[in-house]
């Protein structure tokens, strides 16, 4: 076991690619993604778990990247909104958000998309209560949420509802 000050080696997978860097242990995963890897789709609002703008998938599940130190993700797999967009995984949600006007300034949108993506990946069509629960930790100061719930519902129906492709 090593106990080192200064920077420490970190290797992990980000959006399918192996990444190895030296990091200071106090660097959050959010800051590591944004500053070291220049992946700025992960937004940082409150840095205390309250706003949900910083959500990423860590080993497949949504977590707040402001509440994880990068060193804790050693050997794990991170997917950011950039990766999910590049793979096309978010395309139906992006389309639904666009059609329903579910974003205005867009600050909250990456976090909303990560949570909505995980919800839809469960494979069923959530009811509006379940959608509200899934995004209960995501603040949006613009839209009033209704359009976001609409968009997630529409995307879920398309993905998992009767007659889904």
């Amino acid at each position: 076991m090593n106990m080192m000050a200064g920077t420490v080696p970190l290797s992990l997978t980000v959006n399918g690619e192996e990444v190895a860097r030296m990091v200071a242990p106090r660097t959050t995963l959010a800051d590591f993604l944004r500053t070291d890897l220049e992946l700025t789709a992960t937004h940082v609002g409150c840095e205390m778990g309250a706003c949900g703008a910083c959500l990423v998938l860590l080993d497949g599940v949504p977590v707040h990247s402001c509440l994880v130190f990068a060193v804790q993700a050693q050997g794990q797999s991170v997917e950011t909104v950039e990766g999910l967009v590049a793979s096309g995984a978010l395309a139906p949600l992006q389309q639904a958000f666009h059609e329903r006007n579910a974003l205005q300034c867009g600050f909250c949108t990456p976090g909303m998309l990560v949570n909505a993506h995980a919800l839809i990946a469960r494979g069923s069509v959530p009811d509006r209560e379940e959608i509200r629960d899934a995004i209960s930790g995501n603040y949006c100061r613009c839209t009033g949420y209704e359009a976001i719930v609409d968009a997630i519902e529409a995307a879920a129906r398309k993905a998992n509802g009767e007659g889904a492709e």
Binding site: M3, A5, A24, P25, D31, E47, F69, V71
Partner: peptide, 24 residues
Amino acid sequence: MKARAFAYARPSSLAEAHAAFAGA
């Protein structure tokens, strides 16, 4: 809103964890 610098240890046993605490 950033943590002060710290060193990081990830012990793989309880004994190592107690040793790390004592070491600090």
